[in-house]
């Protein structure tokens, strides 16, 4: 299978990839770059587990071809994490018990980060609406909404 060269930015680093035209972005991130925090739950755009940031916007990496990422900036859960401390969203998820198996969690965190970065004052309805595209089978959603509400303070501070 012939490949196409693409250049993009992944978690802040200039990245070159040679990918088959039919490769989805999620597979390229996971298999070519080893960024396995982006999870593929359905590969149909239904579950939201594979959500990444594309130029800051939350998008599903299973619904994009890798070649479409050329020239764009991608951020994955790894790019939103650091080894020293949990981020405010991660800490809030932990505090509120907003995860059990953790498979949907990277997609939840990335989606919530996109929302709170743009709108640190988002109310519960807005959060619920934004996360309605991310499925969880373990916890139910109440603790997840509570965690995102709790994390708003850190984003409000960052804005101020």
């Amino acid at each position: 299978m012939p490949t196409l060269p693409i250049d993009c930015t992944v978690n802040g680093a200039a990245t070159h990839l040679d990918v088959a035209p039919r490769t989805i972005l999620a597979d390229a991130l996971r298999q070519d770059l080893g960024l396995t925090g982006t999870h593929v739950g359905c590969a149909h755009g239904s579950c939201g587990a594979c959500t990444i940031l594309l130029d800051g916007a939350a998008v599903r990496s299973c619904l994009m071809l890798a070649v479409q990422a050329a020239g764009h900036a991608i951020t994955t859960i790894e790019g939103l994490s650091n080894p020293d401390a949990l981020t405010p969203l991660q800490a809030a998820f932990r505090k509120h018990g907003a995860l059990q198996c953790g498979f949907c969690t990277p997609g939840m965190i990335v989606t919530a980060h996109a929302l709170l970065s743009a709108n640190p004052d988002a109310d519960a309805d807005t959060i619920r609406d934004m996360l309605s595209g991310n499925l969880c089978r373990c916890t139910g959603y109440i603790s997840i909404i509570e965690a995102v509400l709790d994390a708003r303070a850190a984003y409000q501070e960052a804005r101020a």
Binding site: T36, G37, H39, E78, R94, L99, F103
Partner: peptide, 21 residues
């Protein structure tokens, strides 16, 4: 107790079957 497994799962650093290189 805050769960210890959360530290890896929240960072996308868990290892599910398809994550095994």
């Amino acid at each position: 107790i805050e769960r210890i497994e959360d530290l890896r799962l929240l960072r996308g650093a868990g290892c599910f079957t398809d994550d095994i290189a």
